[in-house]
């Protein structure tokens, strides 16, 4: 009983933290997705320069560490004359970092679509947009969802960076709550809430994955999955 009373008391505080965490998650994911698709598609472009630029951007934003990017956006940009709000800085940092990881997943998935499918579209003289939209993307989409799912969970965890730029996200609230309610209560609730949030996003993406596979009427092979998800790490 005590537990639920404390939880009820703490709820308004927790809810405000959850909202910040969700805003960062959704904003970051939306931006990351756009960047991932843009960089992923350019990485298989026939134009060498486009491929090269995409490669450099991907390696740069994967390699420089999320926290460093965040601090750069938050502390350095103002010195250069651009001021980003905390929330905006957080979303942009998450978007750039996970967008770069996502680009690798998109690229891997496009490459995992069987060569015959690409050749088929050429044989039919399809314009690029038609080929992508009607043939290649639906197949790649099913392949990229598991990788994007992994990245989504990492992105949700990454939102805890909010704390470093003075946002009162769930991690911040849990730390506050610790002072009044004790370590085990505060962190117990904190872990549970983060778990549920991650699980929620993960479940939605799982559903999308199943739907995409159903539309194709087949499950990907092991080798295809391996190729598609390779970019989801490091």
């Amino acid at each position: 009983m005590d537990f639920f009373e404390s939880l009820l008391d703490a709820w308004p505080q927790l809810w405000s933290g959850i909202q910040i965490t969700l805003q960062l998650s959704l904003g970051g994911a939306a931006l990351a997705f756009v960047i991932a698709v843009a960089l992923g598609l350019s990485s298989i472009s026939e134009i060498g320069v486009v491929r090269g630029v995409s490669r450099v951007l991907v390696e740069f934003f994967r390699g420089t560490s999320l926290v460093v990017q965040l601090f750069w956006l938050f502390f350095v940009l103002p010195q250069l004359g651009f001021r980003l709000e905390s929330m905006a800085a957080g979303i942009v940092a998450l978007g750039l970092n996970y967008g770069a990881y996502g680009a690798e997943v998109v690229r891997g998935s496009l490459n995992a679509v069987p060569k015959a499918q690409w050749e088929g579209t050429t044989a039919l003289s399809m314009p690029w947009v038609t080929k992508m939209r009607r043939i290649i993307w639906p197949q790649a989409w099913a392949l990229m969802l598991p990788g994007l799912n992994n990245l989504m969970v990492m992105l949700v965890k990454g939102t805890a960076l909010a704390l470093l730029i003075f946002l009162h996200d769930l991690t911040f609230v849990v730390d506050e709550l610790r002072r009044t309610e004790g370590t085990y209560f505060a962190f117990g609730v904190g872990f549970a809430l983060y778990y549920l949030i991650s699980l929620g996003f993960s479940t939605v993406l799982r559903m999308l994955e199943r739907r995409a596979q159903r539309k194709l009427g087949l499950a990907p092979t092991k080798a295809q999955t391996a190729q598609a998800t390779a970019g989801a790490v490091a």
């Binding site: 965890k157 960076l161 962190f187």
Partner: peptide, 19 residues
């Protein structure tokens, strides 16, 4: 293991720090 994997590193760091 799922719970550990799906919750943020900084939160876990805080927790151990206080425990």
């Amino acid at each position: 293991l799922d719970v550990i994997r799906m919750t943020p590193l900084p939160l876990q760091a805080f927790f151990l720090y206080y425990v």
